[in-house]
């Protein structure tokens, strides 16, 4: 099955946050009320009960004046998800059409995935001691529906569909934007981290939207997963074998040298 993806077009988004409400509604997530922080953002970040959020950024550009950028953030559903690699309980799975799913029944709340994710997406839900994140509404998609956020978007900023088709659409849109007042317009998610299933059309460079320009899995995580975990542990059986060998050889040798050997009873020379 072809990869299905969500395309988010920044230039069409009005930051109404209907997607946030639809997400809460469909996933039956309770409201999280956070104190007012002096901007339009509803929450500090995604959290255990908030799978998607509109982030707001204000910039003062010497030429363009004040720029007000907003962007929808949620799980990127990476084609090669790092969360899935580090999970010691195999709680993460990849659906045939590309969603990265997390099974809370298998989760033990170790939060390895939260530290491994280059986009800082998996979040800890303290009251259940599990990690939660966007599911790309797999339960809807598998019934032929579109994700709740894409379904509800009134301005057409969110489109759900075949990844390759959406990429073509995104390219065309970015080209149009570049020619019409957004010279730095670009797309995001085609090649980043080996490809994402959440594609973006941005009116400016990714860093202006709080996205990592070149997202990378931390070297600490790679070192841990690719070197320490698979190989280093073999030292333990090696040491056990050494002790077992000594147990046998020292007794054989002792019987050859006789019990009076220097180690025998109390060690008389």
């Amino acid at each position: 099955m072809a990869n299905l993806a969500n395309l988010y077009d920044v230039s069409k988004c009005t930051a109404c946050r209907g997607c946030q409400v639809a997400c809460k509604d469909w996933n039956q997530l309770p409201a999280v009320i956070e104190p007012f922080k002096g901007n339009y953002q509803t929450h500090e970040d995604t959290n255990g009960d908030t799978f998607t959020i509109i982030n707001f950024f204000e910039y003062e550009d010497p030429v363009d004046g004040v720029r007000w950028n907003f962007i929808k953030r949620q799980c990127m559903h990476c084609l090669d998800p790092e969360c899935m690699k580090v999970c010691p309980r195999q709680a993460y799975t990849k659906t045939s059409w590309g969603a990265t799913l997390h099974d809370p029944d298998k989760c033990i709340g170790c939060q390895y995935c939260a530290a491994a994710c280059p986009f800082d997406i998996p979040k800890y839900r303290k009251r259940e001691d599990v990690i939660t994140k966007c599911t790309m509404c797999a339960d809807r998609v598998e019934e032929g529906l579109t994700p709740a956020c894409a379904r509800t978007c009134p301005s057409g900023a969110l489109t759900f569909g075949d990844r390759d088709e959406l990429l073509q659409k995104a390219e065309a849109r970015a080209k149009f934007l570049r020619a019409n007042g957004f010279p730095r317009a670009t797309i995001y998610g085609r090649v980043e981290l080996g490809g994402l299933n959440n594609l973006y059309v941005l009116t400016d460079t990714p860093d202006m939207f709080g996205l990592p320009v070149n997202p990378k899995v931390s070297g600490n995580i790679t070192f841990w997963q690719d070197w320490i975990q698979p190989y280093f542990g073999w030292l333990i059986p090696l040491m056990l074998t050494a002790s077992a060998t000594s147990f046998v050889t020292s007794r054989i040798l002792a019987s050859k040298h006789g019990e009076h050997g220097e180690h025998g009873e109390g060690g008389h020379e």
Binding site: A115, A116, S218, N220, I221, W224, I228, F232, G233
Partner: peptide, 15 residues
């Protein structure tokens, strides 16, 4: 960053 360092440190120290 410290949490990520702790993961492999914990493993190496354990072994």
């Amino acid at each position: 960053g410290l949490v990520r360092v702790s993961y492999w440190t914990h493993d190496i120290a354990m072994v």
